[in-house]
Design a protein around this nucleic acid. Structure first.
Ligand code: NAD
Ligand code: NAD
Lengths: 218, 218
DNA sequence: TTTATATCGATAAAAATATATCGATAGGTG
DNA sequence: CACCTATCGATATATTTTTATCGATATAAA
């Protein structure tokens, strides 16, 4: 009965804000600041300080009256909450232009993700190496995922291949899929899918811009 | 007084779901289906049919009892709501690995975005061409944005350059920024910032996976 | 033509999320 | 040492978002 310190349930909204706090906290830390108030964080990010305190409460870290939160403790607490304090191995499928950019991005290791291999369809790409990550033939995906107990899969293949790749991942025991293809994947309940779909964010942008410009021209 | 058909206000949540509807609708259309019920869409995406109806109502498109919604009309209505029925010119700054992937992605034109030029710091990259888009020296950014009345800027430079680039964009009259750098940009009220930050989505994934695996090991 | 029913869309209720209020307290100030 | 104040964190309120209920209606079948 090794009960973790009981923290309040984390809403998805809170979860999405936590990385933003880390961003600010790291900067303040580099400026040698040791304590930060919820107000300061809120100001930096354009949020409400009560909301910041609630979010932080969800990580289990507590502050001190008059002082605020200890930055180091807070960074660690948030990272722990996100499971960013240890890396989870992942496979990426589809070393095309987007996939290659992701393979080359070193910062993911700070965010709990360790891409240990990539897989490809295209023979000419197989055996290539990007950022020390080898590209393997797609046929090996399921077996290797299973043997190496890899739990995260990143999908960067074209839309018409995405469901098929997801199925292979699940067959190999992958439990969480980070999907960049603009398609709704059908997966069993125990598989977590997180869509990183740029078009959703782009839609918000184009809509708001149109509204804003409309208002302007009378 | 050319009043547009009055539609209900669009919440950000709704706005983010609209592209998903388009995705489904396009597929159904390719299967020669002409009408679709809110229930069918909801099933495809794992949503609630009432929510789908509410979202669609926000686009101003109405359905018919017993039949549902006319797919073509619905696609057009959603595109119009997102302002995806015409393209807005954009500049991209930072033709690195992520920037290049975006420059090469043809599908953005279906999503209202037309990247007409890219800008770079690095002399060796200037004058390059990716997907027919020329890479220009960063010094020209503000002037050209102003002269060409470009309203959207895409930021794919390293974190420490992002605020500076944003400032140059705003100086050039850019009104909406699609930001890929993991930093909170400070901009005037009239500028719209939409963050396409992968770490937010990754945090949700790593947290949920950890919870899920924890539950499993008793 | 009449009837049955799938589906919409308006209104109402419930749930989730954000914001406000306020007492408690650590630490600085006189 | 006693007081003042910034800040936390618990509780309460307000707002937003989701989900439920139900009457209206267009189509298809009887
Ligand atoms: N490039 C972007 O900026 C961008 C932006 C948003 C979304 N996306 C999405 O990301 C995905 C990839 O885009 P991209 O531009 O990198 O495309 P891409 O064509 O450059 O890369 C796709 C890669 O997947 C490989 N592939 C295809 N089928 C495969 C299979 N069955 N198994 C293994 N590998 C396979 C291809 O060989 C190719 O290398 C697409 O779904 C796209 O819609 C891309
Ligand atoms: N690569 C990824 O997968 C990935 C994922 C998530 C976020 N990001 C973010 O996207 C941004 C770009 O990442 P990247 O991997 O493409 O980096 P990169 O180094 O490959 O590209 C950055 C480019 O910006 C250019 N640049 C730098 N300063 C500039 C300036 N002042 N004006 C014009 N151009 C300038 C550089 O010459 C370079 O070509 C970073 O902020 C990164 O954190 C990247």
């Amino acid at each position: 009965m090794v009960a973790e310190k009981q923290v309040k349930a984390l809403s998805e909204r809170t979860l999405r804000r936590l990385p933003r706090y880390i961003e600010i906290l790291k900067r303040l830390k580099s400026e040698k600041i040791e304590f930060v108030s919820s107000n300061m964080i809120a100001d930096e990010l354009g949020l409400d300080s009560i909301q910041v305190r609630k979010d932080l409460a969800a990580t289990g870290v507590t502050g001190k009256p008059k002082l605020g939160f200890a930055i180091d403790e807070l960074i660690n607490g948030i990272k722990h909450t996100l499971n960013w304090d240890n890396q989870t191995d992942a496979f990426l499928v589809g070393a095309g232009s987007l996939g290659s950019a992701l393979l080359g991005y070193k910062t993911f290791s700070d965010h709990g993700l360790n891409i240990i291999a990539a897989f490809e369809n295209e023979p000419s790409k197989v055996s290539g190496i990007i950022n020390n990550i080898t590209i393997l033939p797609i046929e090996k995906l399921s077996d290797m995922a299973f043997r190496m107990k890899v739990h995260i899969g990143v999908i960067t293949v074209p839309i018409d291949q995405a469901q098929h790749v997801a199925d292979m991942m699940i067959e190999g025991g992958i439990r969480a899929i980070w999907n960049f293809a603009p398609i709704h994947l059908k997966v069993p309940d125990f598989v977590i899918v997180e869509n990183a779909q740029l078009s959703h964010s782009l839609g918000v942008l184009t809509h708001k811009l149109a509204e804003s410009l409309k208002g302007e021209n009378k």
